[in-house]
Amino acid sequence: MDTLKINYKSIYYPPGGILMWIIIFLELITFGMALVAFVYYGIENATVFHESRMQLNTAFGATNTIFLLTSGFFMANAVHLFKENEVKKSSVFFKLAMLGGFLFLALKSVEYYHKIESGISLDTNMFYTFYWLLTGFHVIHVIMGLVILGWTNYGMKKKNSDTTVEDVEACAAFWHMCDLIWLLLFPTLYLFF
């Protein structure tokens, strides 16, 4: 394993890497602007947005927040342990982080199933157009994150692994980005109107 010290205080080396942070900023701005548009249309169609919001299951949203936060907590510990050269323990925390992601997807699937069963689709109203697009894009990010986590975890366990601290940090940064996006989506979609 690469044990070179990374100078995080350099503007070029934020934890996770400069490219990952550029992606994180672009994603936050994209989702953020969509949320601003969501609130703007929500004011224009206050009754529709309130009635639609009341149809969402707040308990599902809050539980999914807890799943992602728990997963992020395990991920942060996995990075910490990897830096300490505790690769086996780090791998266990990687798997726990992935479990949080799978639980999130499972509960999201149940939520989507209920919505589809009730006949709620993308063109039901403006609220649900935003709901499906925003949560759908977020789910795609979570699936991609799980693939990256699985791949990195597989790579770091191999004999003569060339997985570096930078690789693990970049992978963790992507996973935490899914957390960050959800932390903005959950209150705005599930609680705001």
Binding site: Y8, K9, A173, H176
Partner: peptide, 11 residues
């Protein structure tokens, strides 16, 4: 999450 889990505090 950003400052503690992602260690942005070190950046």
């Amino acid at each position: 999450v950003a400052f503690q889990f992602m260690e942005l505090k070190k950046a």
